[in-house]
Structures are given as structure tokens and as C-alpha cells.
Write a protein that binds this DNA or RNA. Structure first.
Lengths: 342, 342
DNA sequence: CTGAAAGCGCTAACAT
DNA sequence: ATGTTAGCGCTTTCAG
């Protein structure tokens, strides 16, 4: 491995000078600069970013902690974060916790222990706010991303998207289409992070004077499989349902599958609406009607907020950035309600 | 940020001793160890991995370079690599090049410049073998993963999967079902990395005495959209086709969509087979028949090979690990050929 | 058993 | 315009 000193020797100068020409700092003679550059080139020198980070006290990476990279939303989000980070000269360390608290701790210790300059943690059903607060108190810049309820901020810097509103939009859409027998498939525990989406849906439905019995609501994980199972069970017990709100796109796909399994035609026999608008949403057949979340904006805000946290004082209050509201994207999985199917 | 020295002061010992108790090296008195641990705990000390990397000459990260994290195969693969890496005490740096050569170079310079201990590069249509060889000559451990043709190894350490064989399996399956009017949708340029998959398919078909005219083969990118477009064009010019081989799952999904768009029922009117078996393959309706690639094994081999490269001499020959052969997974997108549709 | 000292590769004053 | 010096946080001989 080539070092600064070796380059300096070849160029017949000192390490400081090489550093100067490479960083564009200080004054360096034209002739010297040429010699240095030539030496760099011939030796194939590349600066050791670790060493640089050490002396500067600032590594050139930021970390993104996600619960499961297998969930297609995260790669899409990671891509945006990576873009935003790169634009600012950072590399992205992707840490996958697999929903395992121990693994999450290990990663936080490592990245908090100076592997990266700060960490963006994706909000998920199980995120350990306490551990994150501790980390922040220890001086590690932390940003929680995708907090779902701007009105009730967490005790951490965060970027929020109003997903209560997503539930509202989904409900309004379904009601507008004439649906009165509704079901909901929730991609988290009842007290989990999708609760506000559900609440928005329920409040809106109720305000319209439409009943939504408790057994029309099924809870599970944010996966296709859980969505499909929930839908099977839901449609078995209550076949009269004409429209289903899934709190996320993945469970929505599951509902679509269940419909296919049961020989129901979407949207004629059953309307389905999801939340997020991941890539696959418009690639499914039928294409999924969903409430789109401003992923790109949220990613950019998260990086931006993290950078401002880096210069902030540990004692400062936890700031919150709110991304723009989600918006309904109507595709082919929703349609006018006929009379109820039975 | 808490440092070793601060811990040492609190514990009334010297940094070396703290290091010793933390790493389990050297002999430390029971009493001292207790005091040190207490100090670590109370200060919330976490070792600075950068500093450690610097002195040890070995960072605790390895890098994975992918061309597009938006392609769902990569996250799935990344997940496996991350698991394998973590098991060996490494963190995973995910580098997304977006198919941009400049960005690829920037990443390779950075990770080669000691941000990580080595790099796994995913084979893609455009990978710059030359740049990678240079990097390797400079002493950076590099392994290329998912080389498609074990019989013609690249000039780099690599893990290979015989994807010529994938084409063979797909062809055999379709022929066995009685299909004689075939089409192919290729997810790369004619000279690109999917060429061997196609070759395997073509050779097998030809051996069976079945014609596959050149205009039954369409080339494009490895995306759903390109697959759909290709299929539309293919089925428009040659509606008699009863089965399509897509060289990857993503284009296969595109073919499925095109079929839906055209009102064709799969598999009654059209059979479709893909390659890879990504998650979505079994979650589509109809579920996709595909040739499964041993992703997990390949990921494990890649990490393993990288680690052995780390201790290898720069002059050593480029080793190759061959993962087990792909295997056919029959689902609902393929069926018996009726007579041709027209 | 524990401390002192050197040094990883680099940058940032401060000298010259 | 270039060199000298010190030190980032840690590990590792080598003494005591």
C-alpha cells in the first residue's frame, strides 16, 4: 500500500507538501505540484480515508440502519440517501439489523464508535428509541427517519411524514367510490408504527357514518405473506367486504394475491389500496392504487438534518423536519363499489 | 467522545491496560479488570474503530459494489453478504454505482484507499474488468461475484455460477411441455453478461431440432419495463409464440405484464420462464417458473474468497469458486403447449 | 501484572 | 513556497 511519505520521497518533497497539493490547501509551486502529481500517478497512490478521518475527527461515511433490507422499500430509500450523501461527499454504510435488537445494538455501537459520522435510523415497528437517545446523549448524531406522526414527535431529531393523512386519503378514496363494507390489513402490531395510518382511516370512515367493526381489522407484519394470510382470514369471515385498506404496499400485494386465490376480480369484486408507492406498485397487474410517500424528499431531509446535527450541541432540542404530505395515486386496483358481493 | 485515555484515567490505570482488558490480551489482575470495566460502563466508552483500523492496518469493513440497488436482486444478495460478513466480524459498506463508470471509479478509489479491507464487485453488464485488475495489482483484495461462465474465467478472483446451464434448463423445460414456437427476451446487450444464458437456451433448442429465428430474440436491459416492451414487440410481430424465455426474473415479470395487457392468459396462452428466483418470483400471480440461482451460497463463497484474497500474495493466480448449478423451479407461469395460438 | 514508548497514515499549525 | 512538529485514538512490543 502506497503512503503519503512514499509519494513525498519519490517527488523529493515532504509529506505535508503532498498533502497540500492533494487537498488544494496552502501554496505550492507549479513545478513542485507537477512532480508530486506525477509521483501520485506513477505509484497509484490513494489516500487512506481512515487516517484522514482519524486526524480530522470526521469519518467520510454516514450510516443507515434499516430493519430489513429484504423489504423493498429500504433499498429504494437507501438509494436516495446514498445519492444525497454522495452529493455531500459521504459514503453510505448500510446496516441491516434483521429486526434483531442485539444486532441493532452492535451496529449502533460500531457506527457510533466512530465508524461513521452519524446515523440515520429508519423507523420500524420495533425501533428502540431509548437506545437511540442514549447514543445521542453520548454525542453521536442520530436522525430517526419516517416518523409517522408529526403531531406527536419522538424525543429525537427526526424527519416525519404525516401518515395519519395517508389513512385519511385512502378512506376518502374508497368512500368516494361508494364502498361501505370495508376491511383493513395492518402491517404492524396494534400499538405499532402503522397505528396512525389505521387511525386516520378509521376516523375518516367513522366521520362518514360508516361502520368498521373490530373484526374487519387484521394486524400482522409488514410483509406480503402476512397480508395474504390476513386477507384470506378476513374474506373468509366477512365475504361481504368490497374494499380493503392495507397500511402498506407489501401487505396490499398480499391482499391482491388472496383475491386472485379466491377467484375475485380486482377491482370488480374487491378494491385494494396500499400505502407508500414502492416501485412494484405500478408494476403489479392490476397496478396498485396507493398513497404515495415522498421517499426522495424524506431521504434528502434526513441527510440534511443529520449534517446539521453534526454541528449541533448535544443539549439542543430535537428538531423535526416534516416532509410534504402523502398523496393518493389512483391505479387499477380500486373501482366503483357494486352492491355488496352477497 | 470518550477515549481510551479517559477511561484509563478514571480507572487509575494506563491506556495499554484498558486496551488489554478490552481485547482480552495480556494478563490483567482481576481487581484492575473490574475497575476498568466499571469505568468503561460509566463513561459509555466505545472503541474508535477507525483508530483501531489504522494501527492494525485492517479496517473492519468490506465493501460490496453493485450497479443498481434498485434491482431487487442486489438487496437480496447484499443481505446474504452482510450475514456472511458479520459472522466474520466485518461490517458491510454498500456502494451503489448507478451504472455510472465515474461513480464506480470513485467508490473503488475510496474503498481501495483503505476504507475497507477488500471489495466484492457484482458482475453486471458493464463491469470494468480493467479497472478491477488495476485495483488488484495495487494490492486491494477484489472478488468478482456472479460470473456466469465458469468455463471462461475472467482475469480476476471470482465466484461463478454456470448460467449457460440456466438457459439449458429453461429450454428443456419448455420443450418438454411441447412448446415449439419460442421467443427470448434478453436482459442485456447481445454481447452482454446474459449472452451465455441465451446461448444455453439456443443450443438446447437447436439440438432438439426446433427453430429459433433471430427476430424471436429481443435484447434490452435487465428491467421490468424493458421486458414488457420487448414482449409487446415480440408478440406483435410473432403472435404464434407460445413460450418465452426471459434471461432474468425482472424482464420475465415484464413479459407477464405484456401478456396481461394483451389479454393473454398465462400459462394457457403463453408460458414464461425466468432466471434467478428473486423473492417476488413466487409472490407474483401467476407465480413465476424460473431457474433458481444459489444466491446464498454465492454470497458466502464471495466473502470467503475475499478473505482468502486478503492473505494472498498480489502475484498469485486468480482463483475461482464455482457455486452449485442453478436448478429449475416450476410454478404457475408455464404449462403444456396447446396448438399454436393462431 | 502494569506502564512507558513508539508508531499506524494523515493533517494542521507553525517555522523557515 | 516548503519543511518541521505534533498529535488524532489506538495497539503493541518491551521494560519494570
Amino acid at each position: 500500500m502506497t503512503t503519503l511519505v512514499q509519494v513525498a520521497q519519490v517527488a523529493g518533497v515532504t509529506a505535508a507538501t503532498v498533502s497540500n497539493v492533494l487537498r488544494g490547501r496552502g501554496k505550492v509551486g507549479e513545478e513542485t505540484r507537477r512532480r508530486v502529481l506525477a509521483a501520485v500517478e506513477s505509484l497509484g497512490y490513494r489516500p487512506n480515508l481512515m487516517a484522514r478521518a482519524l486526524v480530522e475527527g470526521k469519518p467520510s461515511t454516514i450510516a443507515l440502519v434499516v430493519s430489513s433490507i429484504a423489504n423493498p422499500f429500504y433499498p429504494e430509500f437507501a438509494l436516495q440517501v446514498e445519492r444525497a450523501a454522495r452529493k455531500l461527499g459521504y459514503f453510505l454504510l448500510v446496516c441491516n439489523t434483521n429486526d434483531d435488537p442485539a444486532q441493532e445494538r452492535a451496529y449502533l455501537d460500531a457506527v457510533g464508535g466512530a465508524l461513521s459520522q452519524g446515523v440515520i435510523v429508519m423507523n420500524a415497528d420495533f425501533v428502540q428509541l431509548k437506545a437511540l437517545q442514549e447514543l445521542r446523549q453520548r454525542g453521536v448524531p442520530v436522525v430517526l427517519c419516517m416518523w409517522e406522526r408529526p403531531q406527536e414527535p419522538p424525543p429525537l431529531p427526526c424527519v416525519a411524514v404525516d401518515l395519519y393523512q395517508a389513512g385519511v386519503l385512502a378512506a376518502e378514496h374508497l368512500l368516494r367510490l361508494g364502498h361501505r363494507s370495508l376491511g383493513a390489513v395492518v402491517g404492524s402490531e396494534p400499538s405499532g408504527n402503522h397505528r396512525w395510518r389505521l387511525q386516520g382511516f378509521m376516523d375518516t370512515v367513522e366521520r362518514a357514518g360508516v361502520e368498521l367493526p373490530a373484526d374487519h381489522i387484521r394486524f400482522g407484519h409488514d410483509t406480503i405473506d402476512d397480508g395474504r394470510n390476513a386477507a384470506h382470514s378476513l374474506l373468509a369471515t366477512t365475504p361481504s367486504i368490497t374494499a380493503v385498506f392495507a397500511t402498506n404496499d407489501l401487505p396490499a400485494f398480499g391482499v391482491l394475491q388472496a383475491a386472485a386465490d379466491l377467484g375475485l376480480e380486482v377491482p370488480r369484486d374487491l378494491s385494494v389500496v396500499g400505502v407508500t408507492d414502492i416501485q412494484m406498485a405500478h408494476q403489479m397487474r392490476p397496478a396498485l392504487t396507493t398513497v404515495a410517500v415522498p421517499t426522495e424528499e424524506a431521504a434528502a431531509l434526513a441527510v440534511q438534518l443529520l449534517l446539521s446535527e453534526i454541528t449541533a450541541q448535544p443539549g439542543d432540542a430535537a428538531p423535526m423536519q416534516v416532509a410534504k404530505a402523502p398523496r393518493l395515486v389512483v391505479r387499477s386496483s380500486t373501482g366503483k363499489a357494486l352492491e355488496s358481493r352477497r
